[in-house]
Amino acid sequence: MKKNDIILIAVILVITLGGLASMAFRQKASTEDTADKAYVLVKIDGEEYGRYPLDEDRQERIELPDGSYNVLVIEDGYVQISEASCRDQICVNHFHIHYAGDAIVCLPNRLVVTIEGGEENDIDSATN
């Protein structure tokens, strides 16, 4: 082995490691991008009522024509319904949702809140 061989091997390995590092970095950046794009989709009776970004804290009072309502709260990337006019209160008692595909349903008001895009839940992503 000549000295040049060792230089060649070292250069190849350094370039490869650099490539790996930049790939890991880019992959991280791209997952952050998709997390930014996550939004909360609210549907009433199957029709879209509105969509709100998941990363923005807000409180939205969703009024229905017949006077019933749900109060949607987005806080720290988690969504919950804090108040509802319905009598069973299942949507209010539902645990807050965060991952893509999670949903809260309020059947009496025909309201469906889902999270679209963004972070997948790793725990049972295999079963999705």
Partner: peptide, 14 residues
């Protein structure tokens, strides 16, 4: 003529 047999072989493998 920069490399010996080993260097040439590494180039080939990569």
């Amino acid at each position: 003529k920069l490399f010996s047999v080993t260097g040439v072989s590494v180039l080939g493998g990569v």
